[in-house]
């Protein structure tokens, strides 16, 4: 069954993205996860968002990761975890098992027939507030990155240097 194979691939890629000790390898496994999630979205009948996820999630974000790793330097991640691992496992497994136990019996056994509507109409008319939010997010993201990437000295130090 193709869907089960894709789901297995998604989970394996996510597992190795977390487990990889080298950051670059972790970023590449993350790109694989994104590509398989995009494939699953396409199979669920959402081709528009699958294309965007493939280009942004597997493309742009991976390039950003490689760029950031190049600037910060590749270092082995072997620090001890801030939380004890059994506690982290419990904090993840208990909600996951409860959610699965409550939701899985109510999940339909098959998907209803795909009724394709007008995606553009829904996006631009019914969800116009989301578009506004996206514009604000992109604008604030650009401003945030400009502020963070800029290599200016803090005001206090600049004054001290002038005085010296």
């Amino acid at each position: 069954m193709l869907e089960a194979a894709i789901v297995a691939g998604i989970l394996i890629c996510a597992f190795f993205a977390i487990r990889a000790s080298r950051l670059l390898v972790s970023a590449l496994w993350l790109a694989g996860t994104s590509a398989l999630v995009a494939l699953m979205m396409y199979m669920l009948g959402a081709p528009e968002i699958a294309v965007i996820e493939l280009s942004v999630g597997a493309g742009l974000v991976t390039v950003l990761f490689v760029f950031a790793i190049n600037l910060t330097g590749e270092e082995e991640v072997r620090w001890p975890a801030p939380l004890p691992k059994p506690l982290a496992w419990a904090m993840v497994l208990i909600p996951a098992v409860l959610l699965g136990w409550m939701v899985l019996p109510n999940v339909q056994s098959s998907l209803p027939a795909l009724m394709r509507g007008d995606f553009q109409a829904v996006l631009w008319e019914a969800r116009s507030l989301d578009i506004l939010l996206q514009v604000v997010l992109i604008f604030s993201g650009v401003l945030g990155v400009l502020g963070l990437i800029s290599d200016t000295e803090p005001a206090g130090e600049a004054i001290e240097e002038e005085g010296a």
């Binding site: 979205m41 669920l44 968002i49 974000v61 950003l64 995606f119």
Partner: peptide
Amino acid sequence: IETGQALALTVIVADTIVAVVGLA
């Protein structure tokens, strides 16, 4: 499915901004 896709698009944009700002 269109509503799901529209919401997922917003999540993709927000997620990318989070990644960009986090990496910067």
